[in-house]
Amino acid sequence: MENLSALDDRRDPLLIAERWIKDGRALALATVVETWGSAPRPVGSHLVIDTEGNFEGSVSGGCVEGAVVAEAADVIETGAPRLLEFGVADETAWEVGLSCGGRIKVYVEPLG
């Protein structure tokens, strides 16, 4: 069927995830579920990650993706979802943060 929707096959993380699942790759899906203050990506934004650390999409402007990808490996292995929080106000818990001063919560779950 013709793609009516203007979805971008090459960049849309959920379309990419569907192809990766077809290829038999084990995946995790990260989703921004809450933001406070100035956050680079809106609630609902996705990052899809495989066991090799390949990823597509974004949950921030590149500030926390590295940490999310590292957590994703554990989530794929254990099969248990987890909720991560990032922000400059939370320096004790997280070394990485958002330079823009916002805070975000990212839900990471197995996909497939």
């Binding site: 069927m1 009516l4 959920l14 379309l15 569907e18 899906l29 996909l111 497939g112």
Partner: peptide
Amino acid sequence: MRAEALRALNAERRARR
């Protein structure tokens, strides 16, 4: 997310629903 849910969601998105 289950693979089925992902496929169903993408089908809705492709059909502009």
